[in-house]
C-alpha cells in the first residue's frame, strides 16, 4: 500500500525482493545499505537463521530524495527463498507496491527460478495482485560465476511481460542500484497514474 503523508510530505512505498534460495536477495539489500549515506537509510534488519539464510525477512528503509517537495521513501524487504518458508513469503507480500525477482543465472538453478516465479504469481494472486500488472523487474544475478546460462536464454525462460531485465553481480554491487531504480521508477509512475 503506497502511503502518502501530505502532512509530513512523504511518499512511502514497499518493494519486495523475491526469488529462489541463495539467489542473492539479501546480498542486494546489504549492498544498498553499504552505499547509502547514513541520513538516507535506517537500520538493516535481518531475521535470519544462524547460517545466514533468511528466516522471515530482511528490511531496509531508504530514501531517494525529493520530488515536488515530497520525500520518497522505499521500504525494501526480502523474502526467504527456501521452498518450505512459503507461509512467511505470503505475509511479506502484504501491501507490496513493486517486486524485484532475483534470478540465479546458474544452469542448475533454472528449475528453482521457475518454481519461484510460479510461486510468486500464486502468492500475489492470493493477496489480490496480478503479476502481469504490478511493477516488476527481473534481475539476472551471479553473472560472475562459471556455468551460467546466456542472458538470452534466461530472458526467454523467465521474462513474464517484457519487464526490465538487469544483469547483476550483487556482492560487487553490479546491477544492484539499476535494479532498485528500475522498480522505483515503475512504482512512482503507477502512483502518478492513480492520481
Amino acid at each position: 500500500m503506497t502511503f502518502i503523508n501530505y502532512v509530513a510530505r512523504e511518499i512511502n512505498c514497499k518493494i519486495v525482493y523475491y526469488g529462489p534460495g541463495l539467489g542473492g536477495k539479501t546480498t542486494n539489500l546489504q549492498y544498498v545499505y553499504q552505499i547509502t549515506s547514513a541520513e538516507n537509510k535506517g537500520k538493516l534488519i535481518s531475521l535470519a537463521t544462524e547460517t545466514e539464510r533468511t528466516l522471515f525477512f530482511d528490511f531496509l528503509p531508504i530514501e531517494f530524495g525529493q520530488i515536488r517537495g515530497f520525500r520518497t521513501r522505499f521500504h525494501l524487504y526480502t523474502v526467504p527463498g527456501q521452498v518450505f518458508y512459503d507461509s512467511s513469503r505470503k505475509l511479506i507480500l502484504k501491501g507490496v507496491d513493486g517486486v524485484v525477482f532475483v534470478a540465479d543465472s546458474q544452469e542448475e538453478r533454472m528449475d528453482a527460478n521457475l518454481e519461484s516465479i510460479s510461486n510468486l504469481e500464486d502468492n500475489l494472486k492470493e493477496q489480490g495482485f496480478d503479476l502481469a500488472k504490478i511493477p516488476y523487474v527481473l534481475q539476472l544475478n551471479k553473472r560472475d560465476l562459471p556455468g551460467i546460462l546466456p542472458v538470452e536464454e534466461l530472458k526467454r525462460q523467465l521474462q513474464v511481460k517484457g519487464e526490465p531485465c538487469i544483469e547483476a553481480v550483487a556482492p560487487q554491487g553490479i546491477g544492484v542500484l539499476p535494479t532498485l531504480k528500475a522498480v522505483a521508477r515503475q512504482v512512482l509512475v503507477e502512483l502518478r497514474k492513480s492520481a
Partner: peptide, 8 residues
C-alpha cells in the same frame, strides 16, 4: 492493479 493508496 496495485495496492490502494492511502493518504494522510
Amino acid at each position: 492493479m496495485s495496492s490502494p493508496t492511502f493518504g494522510l
